[in-house]
Amino acid sequence: MNAQNLFKAGLTAGAMFLVLGLTQAGAAPAIGQPAPGFTATDSNGKTVKLSDYRGKVVVLEWTNNECPYVKKHYGSSNMQTLQKDATGQGVVWLTVISSAKGEQGYVEPAAANQLTASRSASPSAVLLDPSGKIGQEYGAKTTPHMYIVDPAGKLVYMGGIDDKPTNNPADIPNSKNYVRAALDEVMAGKPVSEPVTRAYGCTIKYQS
């Protein structure tokens, strides 16, 4: 191998590391690893940090109120029931809206609060993420897309709300709610048996 080839090889290796590094940065967070930290503004103008909830179980719910799959779970009160049950046990429930301004699901803070009231939802806070930064950090793809962070700040669940990828509310009673199952296990101090599942729903309308 002459000097020129060596130089080329070095350059290629360097470029590969760079590419690898970049893709790694964009990859979804891993189960058992610290959940990506964030600072966000909620629908009441309050600043919310993930690290504020260290010691508590945190649920992240990506939503878009116009998405038929979100409607399936809100129209049937499935989501609200889960929120009440969870927050009743001291779980922090953060609803996240990552739709960019002008896209489906984007709401101004007042409208967000109005939605919470009209749907009798009980999230601990609704986070507005029109830049999509938090969504992309978590690799959130669909609405709904669910994540659970344990009291130590580690990601313990990411995926769908349940195992029936339809928009038909009639399927809810016969489906397995992954989030409820995972929360039960986390609250009992047990490892989550199905930590990664397929999220289904509408594509998150990220800022392009």
């Binding site: 116009e66 998405c67 799959y69 928009n167 509408c202 309308k205």
Partner: peptide
């Protein structure tokens, strides 16, 4: 037949 039609938004 059940299908989901999508453009920017989706309609079942």
């Amino acid at each position: 037949a059940n299908w989901l039609a999508c453009a920017q938004i989706c309609v079942p």
